[in-house]
Design a protein around this nucleic acid. Sequence first.
DNA 1: GACCCTGGGTTCTGATTCGGAACTGACCTG
DNA 2: CAGGTCAGTTCCGAATCAGAACCCAGGGTC
Lengths: 148, 148
Amino acid sequence: MAGRGDDATTLERTLQLVGDRWSILIIRAALRGVRRFDEFQSDLGIARPILTNRLRRLVDGGVMAKEPYQEHPPRYEYKLTPAGVALSPALVALIRWGEHHLADGDADIVLVHAPCGTELEQGFWCRHCATTFSPGAIRAAARDRTDP
Amino acid sequence: MAGRGDDATTLERTLQLVGDRWSILIIRAALRGVRRFDEFQSDLGIARPILTNRLRRLVDGGVMAKEPYQEHPPRYEYKLTPAGVALSPALVALIRWGEHHLADGDADIVLVHAPCGTELEQGFWCRHCATTFSPGAIRAAARDRTDP
DNA sequence: GACCCTGGGTTCTGATTCGGAACTGACCTG
DNA sequence: CAGGTCAGTTCCGAATCAGAACCCAGGGTC
C-alpha cells in the first residue's frame, strides 16, 4: 500500500465520525434492525447522554436518518441511510479481523453467505485485470476529474 | 445482515484496540512505511504521551511489534505484524467510504490496483456459490468446531 | 570533558469527554 | 389520577486527552 498521504484528511474525518468505541456498535445494531432510542440504549449498555450525542453525530454525518414514526407523542426512529449501509464492508472487515485474530475460545462466530452457509471471503477486485489481489498491490491516486 | 449478537464481545474488544481516533491512523502510517516514534509523532501530529500509550496497546494487542534496530544507543522501531497487515481490508473500507461519502472537493483520492491503475472494488465472495453478494446476504453463524 | 543534539520516552498541568443516576415532559393506560 | 413508556436533558465525579516541559542515555564536536 504505497502512495502519498493526501487522503489523510478524509480518513481523519471518517474517524471523527465513526472512530470511537460506540459508533460502530450503533451501526452494527442498526444493521441488525434496532431502531429506537431506548432499544439502542439497552442493547448496547451505552450511557444515555452519549447515545444522544452519537446519534446526533451520525445523523449530521449522513450515516443515519431520524424519522418520526408516530406523532401524538412525538417519537422518532433512527435508521441507516444508504451511506450508512455502505459502511458494512468496514464493519465486516473489523468483525472478521476480530474473530480471526482476537478470538480466544468461546465467542467464535463466522460470517457466512446466508443462502448456502459458506464462510464469506472479502477481497480486493480489479475489474480491468479480472483478478483479486493483496493489500500490497494497492496504490492511492488522485481521482480523474474529467470523467464524471 | 441478520443473526444473533454473539460476536458483540469480539467486536467490542476489536474496537477497544483500534476504535479510537488515532490507532487506525497509526496503522495507516505504518502501512506507508513509518517506523520510528518521532516519525509517527510528527507525521500524525499526535501528542507524545498518547502515542506512547497507543503503540503500547497495539504491541500488546499483537498488531505491532517493537524491535530494536540498533543497540548502542538502544533504539526501537515499530512494525506491523501479519495480524496488523490483516487489518488493511478494514482500513481500505474506511478510506473508500470516506472518499465516496464524505469527500467534498479537494481531497479526492481513489485506491487503485497498482499494476493497471484501475479503481479497486471490494466485495464479499462466496467460494461455494462462486458469486459476489451484498451485505443483506450475510449471516452470522457459530463456527463449526469439528473442522479445526 | 563541557556542550549540544537526537531518539524515545515520562511527568506535570488544565481542558474535554465519559459514564451513571436522577430529572423532565409529553403522552398513554387502567 | 397513579403509574408506565419513550426520548431525551441535567448534574455530577471519574477517566482520558492534548500540550508543554522535563529526563536520560548515548554520540559528536571542539
